[in-house]
């Protein structure tokens, strides 16, 4: 069983194509810009225990319209065994229906993927949040002591060709966007492979606390980040 916050049968912002998205309850960090802080606690009245079979039942009638399934959170890697079981079932369903489904993970990267080889066998890729590169910047933003594992995950996932996308939420003053981009480019160079980078504009909707009234970065600011990334040889999109 997993604690599931909600299921969305049609999502176009959780990976390539049209996807069925599963949002698990519970997160291990506390990002100041989190736009769904209600998913942070491990338990919540609006979250429900669901078995893999429960989710598959909801998924079944959507299959012809989908490219795949994305599991997000909260932080879905806090429930890795269930995730493995779900992905196995999704793959099986796709096979039976003769409609292959891809399985993606949307993660904050704080749990080492290399520790879960069985999961990585059935997971087609990870959309990895790189929230900051400098450890102090990261700690101030997320409340977590270190981003060492995130950095390791970046290289490891790229090395085994499971890095679907790198995501950076852009918020000047709180996120070292340029430093992240420089280090991503360096990692890509050292491994000799690239992955798409998505620059996500900070939006105050849903945010609680100190950033709830913080303005969004301007178009100009976002374009500057994108230009900087281009100069580093990165393929970026803005959302």
């Amino acid at each position: 069983m997993a604690i599931v916050r909600k299921l969305i049968s049609q999502s176009t912002v959780d990976g390539p194509g049209n996807r069925f998205a599963v949002f698990l309850q519970g997160c291990n960090i506390r990002c100041a810009y989190c736009h769904n802080p209600e998913t942070q606690a491990m338990h919540d009245d609006e979250a429900h225990e669901m078995s893999v079979v429960d989710v598959i039942r909801e998924l079944e009638h959507c299959v012809p319209f989908l490219r795949g399934v994305t599991v997000s959170g909260g932080e879905c890697m806090l429930q890795p065994e269930w995730l493995t079981e779900l992905f196995l079932a999704v793959k099986r369903l796709g096979q039976i229906r003769n409609h292959p489904l891809t399985c993606l993970v949307d993660s904050n990267g704080t749990i080492p993927f290399s520790h879960y080889p069985e999961l990585m066998q059935v997971c087609d890729g990870v959309m990895l949040d790189v929230k900051a590169w400098d450890e102090a910047v990261y700690s101030r933003l997320t409340g977590a002591p270190s981003n060492q594992v995130v950095r390791e995950n970046l290289g490891w996932l790229l090395g085994c060709d499971k890095l679907t996308e790198v995501r950076i939420v852009c918020l000047s003053g709180r996120v070292d966007v340029e430093t992240i981009l420089e280090n991503i480019a360096e990692t890509f160079d050292s491994i000799g492979r690239k992955a798409p980078v998505r620059l996500i504009r900070f939006r105050p909707q849903g945010v609680v606390g100190e950033l709830s009234n913080h303005p969004m970065p301007s178009d100009e600011q976002m374009n500057n980040y994108a230009r900087f990334a281009h100069e580093l040889g990165l393929g970026v999109t803005i959302r």
């Binding site: 176009t12 912002v13 194509g17 049209n18 012809p64 319209f65 989908l66 490219r67 959302r239």
Partner: peptide
């Protein structure tokens, strides 16, 4: 209007529609 950013997703829906 967000569909414009992901025509591939709309195509997936079209494929499904035609399949059924």
């Amino acid at each position: 209007i967000t569909g414009k950013q992901n025509p591939a997703a709309v195509l997936d829906i079209v494929k499904g529609a035609f399949e059924v």
